[in-house]
Amino acid sequence: MISLIAALAVDRVIGMENAMPWNLPADLAWFKRNTLNKPVIMGRHTWESIGRPLPGRKNIILSSQPGTDDRVTWVKSVDEAIAACGDVPEIMVIGGGRVYEQFLPKAQKLYLTHIDAEVEGDTHFPDYEPDDWESVFSEFHDADAQNSHSYCFEILERR
């Protein structure tokens, strides 16, 4: 099963200049909980913004210009990325925008964090048809001392 995991502000903004323009430790914990011990696929820009392999996960970098870091697996196509994951129950696609666009048609599940923030962004989550998805989990949280904005975790499964 292919799943996408993303944090989205208003207007589906997911990033600005290779960074997330908010401070939500709870979302980072949600991300870790849902990706640990699963292969993660990301684009080169996302890889560069993280700066290191995510521990406890097979890191697969999709790029037309593969790098030389041998701590991760470099691939040039969506099919190659899927094959590099091996026989696993769930593959997690973690961004960025172009990689989400490439995998959305193949995805069966979306793990979304909806952030109540209007922020400037240069990267967006692809538009998706809500009628194609069923919400199977939703959990709202107010902003607090650690988390700069209110947010809602949601899991959607393709109908």
Rank of each mutant, 00 (worst) to 15 (best):
residue 5 I to A: 00
residue 5 I to T: 00
residue 5 I to S: 00
residue 7 A to M: 00
residue 9 A to K: 00
residue 13 V to F: 03
residue 13 V to T: 11
residue 13 V to W: 02
residue 15 G to R: 01
residue 17 E to H: 01
residue 19 A to S: 06
residue 23 N to L: 05
residue 24 L to F: 08
residue 24 L to N: 10
residue 28 L to Y: 11
residue 28 L to R: 00
residue 30 W to F: 15
residue 30 W to G: 13
residue 32 K to V: 04
residue 34 N to M: 03
residue 36 L to Q: 13
residue 37 N to G: 05
residue 40 V to T: 14
residue 40 V to A: 14
residue 40 V to W: 00
residue 41 I to A: 15
residue 43 G to E: 02
residue 45 H to G: 09
residue 49 S to G: 03
residue 52 R to I: 11
residue 53 P to S: 09
residue 60 I to T: 04
residue 60 I to G: 01
residue 62 L to S: 03
residue 63 S to C: 14
residue 63 S to N: 01
residue 63 S to F: 02
residue 65 Q to M: 04
residue 67 G to Y: 07
residue 68 T to S: 11
residue 69 D to W: 12
residue 70 D to L: 10
residue 71 R to L: 06
residue 71 R to I: 09
residue 75 V to W: 11
residue 76 K to A: 07
residue 76 K to T: 06
residue 78 V to A: 13
residue 80 E to L: 05
residue 80 E to A: 04
residue 81 A to T: 14
residue 81 A to G: 06
residue 84 A to T: 10
residue 85 C to P: 11
residue 87 D to E: 08
residue 87 D to H: 11
residue 88 V to R: 09
residue 88 V to T: 12
residue 89 P to E: 07
residue 90 E to H: 08
residue 94 I to A: 03
residue 94 I to N: 00
residue 94 I to G: 01
residue 99 V to A: 11
residue 101 E to T: 06
residue 103 F to A: 15
residue 105 P to N: 09
residue 106 K to H: 14
residue 109 K to F: 11
residue 111 Y to I: 12
residue 112 L to V: 08
residue 115 I to Y: 04
residue 116 D to S: 14
residue 117 A to Y: 01
residue 118 E to P: 14
residue 119 V to H: 03
residue 119 V to M: 08
residue 120 E to I: 08
residue 121 G to L: 00
residue 121 G to R: 00
residue 126 P to F: 02
residue 130 P to S: 14
residue 130 P to D: 12
residue 132 D to E: 04
residue 134 E to V: 11
residue 136 V to W: 08
residue 138 S to L: 12
residue 138 S to M: 08
residue 140 F to V: 14
residue 140 F to D: 13
residue 142 D to A: 14
residue 142 D to Q: 09
residue 142 D to L: 12
residue 143 A to N: 06
residue 145 A to W: 08
residue 145 A to N: 11
residue 147 N to E: 05
residue 151 Y to M: 06
residue 152 C to M: 14
residue 154 E to T: 15
residue 155 I to K: 07
residue 156 L to Y: 15
residue 157 E to Y: 05
residue 159 R to T: 11
residue 159 R to V: 11
